[in-house]
Write a protein that binds this DNA or RNA. Sequence first.
RNA 1: GGCUGGGUAGCUCAGCUGGUUAGAGCGCACGACUCAUAAUCGUGAGGUCGGGGGUUCGAGUCCCCCCCCAGCUACCA
Length: 501
Amino acid sequence: MTRPFYLTTAIDYANGDPHLGHALEKIGADVIARWHRLRGEPVHFLMGMDEHGQKVHQAATAAGSEPGPWTDAISERFNTTWHRLHCSHDDWMRTTEPRHTRAVTALLERIQATSPSHLFQGEYEGLYCVGCEEFKQEGQLVEGKCAEHPSADLVPTRERNTFFRLSAWRDDILASIESGELRVEPAIRRNEILSVLRSGLQDISISRSRLPWGIPFPGSVDETVYVWFDALINYLSGTGYPDEGWDTLWPADLHVVGKGITRFHCIIWPAMLRAAGLPMPRMVWAHGYVQWDGAKVSKSEGTAVSLDEAVDRHGADALRWFLMREVGFEADGDFSFERFDARYASDLADGLGNLASRATAMLVKYRDGVVPESPPPTTLDDAAMALTQEYVTAMSTLALRDAAAAIGRLVSEADGFVSASAPWALAKAGDDDALDAVLAALARTLLRLALMAAPFMPEKAGALWAALGQHGGPEGQWARAERPEMAGMTVIKPENLFPKS
RNA sequence: GGCUGGGUAGCUCAGCUGGUUAGAGCGCACGACUCAUAAUCGUGAGGUCGGGGGUUCGAGUCCCCCCCCAGCUACCA
């Protein structure tokens, strides 16, 4: 059996509601997962929640609740939201689940066994930011506050706890990233990490005393595992670790994370794995942030852009499209309803949707919906083939925005082809051969478009797929985008794929 | 302060190792068509390529200085 493509998103911190910033990451990862399934590869796609730590404890308490019920409710809300956005994760990992706790304990014990000197006792004193769940250095402060959480006070804290010898792994990790054993993309993120590594690493504290809401530190009575150390291990618990068979999924092929947490994923996490004698993940992709009129929409200082409102606007698929096509999965990008509306109208309603309508309407009108026998090539087939190749290249380098753009260009090519060949004139003139050639080429192009759009807009692509007389789903059918064959198949005109209110 | 990216038409962005009148999409104006969700197609207007020097026969594309934006980082998490 082929080893599955194992990809993960970051697990979100259970202290608020899901918003657009979270959604970008989940959708981007979902597009990647669906792309692999489209090509017939087995996929294991993990998402989940990060539920331990001081901030969750505080949020629950402030809400007059207990951490347990509180995180149950939040976890449910997130997972429901992701399903509403058509995320196709195979598993949902909560760090409060026994299977995760077991994996954390097992990994720590394995580190202890493999690299005994890498866990040691120490004392730390510093200013702790509850929002970040980490200590801050003087130089990181802005007006005496944490730059990420200016509304919260920093807490002077002194703790005796367990340290992890992160510094020992600097050269190893540096070499791994430079050699490509651990790929860090896009390049700007890799440069940042390399620069951090070159300037040296500090050992880190990985336990917390006096904090009950966490996983008990193995061998200690009053310490819990530092929430970041805990959280990262979810990628391993998602494989079933330490039960037999976990290594059919590990190492992960791809961790999709936000640019703000690349260090945890590209330095601390690989070091943890190395210390345990386990392989590093193959790749970390750090996406940018969604901005709202230039302002950051973060998990912590969340700008109030209602995800529900955005979904209700034009539907989940349209939101997915907008985030991938305009906001992008690499650098930061802006979200606004004005831009969303414009994209919806031009790319989807007047673009893909209208093309599907006009092409299927002509097939029904002139040929009773039966795609005529008229093999390629036409000028449209040639253009479509080239764009299909561009799409493949873009998808395989995770240039999701470029891939989406290729879809838009194919729609334009097809519209131009219709105008240039004027099938209605061919019908009037009774030029059946020429009309057949045009209609057949359009049918092939719609099939391609349904397949290319499937990772981005699964519901709409599925509706188009069905209207083209295809059974089942597009999953596993990518080869047909490269050699589309539609002759003899019966198409119907679908309901408006993207209605204009 | 250091480092890394970026600053190209109103908006979103392409422009590899320097080479004819700087491109695309959206939006806008005008025209055409009628298969289609009043959709589509064509044409046009619109840019001193952040600013200033320099190298070159020739620079958006190389070098130097400056300005602005974003991020990372800085006498221990």
